[in-house]
Amino acid sequence: MRFRRWPRPTAYRETPRKRAALLRKQRRERDALPLFADAIAAGQRDVDEEMARRHVWWIDREHEQRRQRAARWREARARLFALPAPLRRKVRALWRTCPYPADPASFADFLHQIAIGRLDPDRPPWLFHQQTQARITANPATFEEAFRQIGRKSVGGGPKTTPADELLFCGNLGSGILFLTSRVRLIDPNESFYTSSNHRLRDSHVGRAGHWVDIEVRGDCSEADLSLIRRLAQAADTRPVIVRRVNPLCGRV
């Protein structure tokens, strides 16, 4: 059970500052009502008399505070052990890690918040509970709606050719995240391959008659999803589109 120990009673410490503070207090009381200054002074204690009174009062006050604190702890623990055993174990585990001060008032309020339903023992507010929910595009109408471009790199190139852009897309149709790699390829492998460096899946205007779009799909993709990707990609480009599933361990399928 987490708790903060209360310091043991100590004797009252008399200091010159406390004696001076008492004299200032008595002087302000007399100055506040000048016409009754003598009557007020007659009712004020001498400094030594007041210090002696505080020595006795301080010890009694310390013992009373310890008694009240112990009584509050006993009351709070009685409420704890009145809970059902499964909930009691859960509450004790939460109390060990919660940010509340380890005193009886905080523990009693902790139990009260649980009793009235403002604090859920299964989801304490001092812990972060992130709701993980994948972003799914269930019925996309276009390729851009289903997949977002996340990467691009230049591939190929040589003395008579310019590099082509290989685009990387990602999306989720419901079965899990998919990664698509799009690349323009020659219909005739012996034909010189010239394409602009700003190639996109839809807006490339270079060599449409002599090229086709190769899309490799990585991820958990069903046949229905593969057909949907093929249909969306073909609708986004006038060139032939081939969509293939890729197994990272075995290569293309």
Rank of each mutant, 00 (worst) to 15 (best):
I114F: 10
V47F: 04
D214F: 07
A105P: 00
P125R: 11
C170R: 14
Q44H: 09
I136S: 06
A105F: 03
R17S: 10
R28E: 15
E145C: 03
E145A: 13
L186W: 01
R239T: 04
K153I: 14
F81R: 14
A164W: 00
P84G: 02
S196W: 02
G43N: 06
A141N: 11
A138E: 14
A146G: 05
G174M: 06
S222I: 10
R61G: 06
Y12N: 08
R2I: 12
P140D: 05
D48F: 05
P84Q: 07
L23E: 14
D214A: 07
Q131F: 06
M51N: 05
L168E: 08
A236E: 12
G157Y: 00
L226H: 13
V243K: 00
R123M: 08
V243G: 00
L168Q: 08
G156F: 01
R79K: 12
R61E: 14
R123D: 05
L180N: 00
Y194E: 11
Y100L: 14
W126K: 07
T142Y: 08
A115R: 13
D214M: 06
V243T: 03
A93Y: 09
R208D: 10
A164C: 06
Q149S: 05
I187C: 11
Q133E: 07
R2W: 14
R27Q: 15
I187N: 13
G207S: 14
R28G: 03
L119S: 01
R19H: 11
L22Q: 12
F107G: 00
S196C: 10
A71S: 12
P104R: 00
F107I: 02
I59G: 01
R252D: 04
G151V: 08
T181M: 08
D220W: 11
K90F: 04
R218D: 13
R88P: 01
L180P: 00
M1V: 07
R2M: 11
V155F: 11
A78R: 11
N190I: 01
D214H: 08
R230K: 15
I59H: 10
G117Q: 03
Q68W: 05
W212L: 10
F81L: 10
L167K: 00
R54L: 15
H211E: 02
K90D: 09
H205C: 04
P99M: 10
R148M: 12
I177G: 03
E216G: 12
V184A: 11
I59R: 12
D38V: 09
L87C: 04
S197E: 13
A233V: 01
I40D: 01
F143L: 12
P16V: 04
S106F: 03
G117L: 09
H205G: 02
I187T: 11
D220L: 10
S192N: 09
E223T: 09
L167I: 15
R77I: 07
D122W: 03
R183I: 13
V246C: 06
